[in-house]
């Protein structure tokens, strides 16, 4: 659930737009480089974008008695690293803002920042961290997707609390209010997203071993691989 059209004051809308733009530009560059150097990954890129499309169209009921939807950004962040997700997430948000009046053009910058930048980076960070401690792949994938989803909505709550601090209890009061609307609602949905991402990753391990090895998700001789990968980057 994104911030609705016109619901951020102009100064905030512009600031978030300015904050997001470099990430998206950098993402477009990474995306074109990836497609140029590895044309065979175009299909998997499309599948990652498609996963975001499906999940962010699924409005699910939650324990708070309201509905929200997952983001689907964790999968692409784990497969292709977060910069590419900045682009795929922005495309999804644009589709929803233009055709569904869901989210909006004036709030696009803020929504891109939460869903296409902060979420993917947080999820990817957790994924890498857990990988380092030799946690089984599917567990790291679950937490990567879970965190990417949940952080998205925590950031949304912070964005709204910054724009609309409570007159009596200030920023923290408003954060509690928006957090209880967005973040708490999101917890079971983030679990669902984690499970669905694990499902897709299991199918990918079955069907696209070569691709996953090239992307460094499946490691043969784990230590060496991570090191060479780190050097390459």
């Amino acid at each position: 659930m994104h911030i609705a059209e016109g619901f951020l004051p102009p100064a905030h809308a512009i600031a978030w737009g300015v904050a997001s733009a470099p990430f998206v530009v950098h993402g477009v560059r990474s995306l074109t480089r990836e497609v140029r150097e590895h044309p065979e990954s175009t299909l998997l890129l499309g599948a990652s974008g498609a996963f975001t499309f499906v999940l962010s169209a699924l409005k699910l009921p939650s324990v708070t008695g309201s509905c929200s939807h997952p983001t689907g950004t964790g999968l692409g962040a784990i497969l292709f690293r977060p910069p590419i997700m900045a682009v795929l997430g922005t495309i999804t948000l644009l589709f929803q803002a233009l055709l569904l009046a869901h989210g909006g053009l004036t709030t696009l910058g803020a929504n891109v920042f939460s869903m296409a930048i902060a979420g993917p980076w947080a999820g990817y960070g957790i994924y890498r961290l857990l990988r380092r401690y030799d946690v089984p792949l599917m567990v790291t994938v679950f937490f990567g997707a879970f965190v990417a989803d949940l952080v998205t909505y925590c950031v949304t709550s912070v964005q709204l609390a910054l724009a609309f601090p409570d007159p009596s209890s200030g920023f923290l009061g408003a954060l509690g209010k928006f957090g209880s609307i967005f973040a708490v609602t999101q917890i079971p949905l983030a679990v669902s997203e984690g499970l669905l991402t694990v499902l897709v990753m299991r199918l990918l391990v079955q069907s696209s071993k070569g691709e996953l090895t090239r992307l460094g998700v499946l490691l043969s001789g784990r230590r060496n691989r991570t090191e060479t990968e780190a050097v390459a980057r």
């Binding site: 659930m1 994104h2 911030i3 609705a4 059209e5 016109g6 619901f7 004051p9 102009p10 409005k59 708070t64 309201s66 509905c67 929200s68 869901h102 909006g104 053009l105 004036t106 709204l160 609309f164 601090p165 409570d166 007159p167 408003a174 209010k177 928006f178 609307i181 967005f182 609602t185 999101q186």
Partner: peptide
């Protein structure tokens, strides 16, 4: 209902004068 709709309500509670400008 949608969480985004609830957030809109919360915004109008905090700042009753706020009008979406777009």
């Amino acid at each position: 209902t949608g969480a985004d709709g609830e957030a809109e309500t919360a915004i109008t509670e905090i700042e009753p004068d706020y009008e979406p400008w777009f």
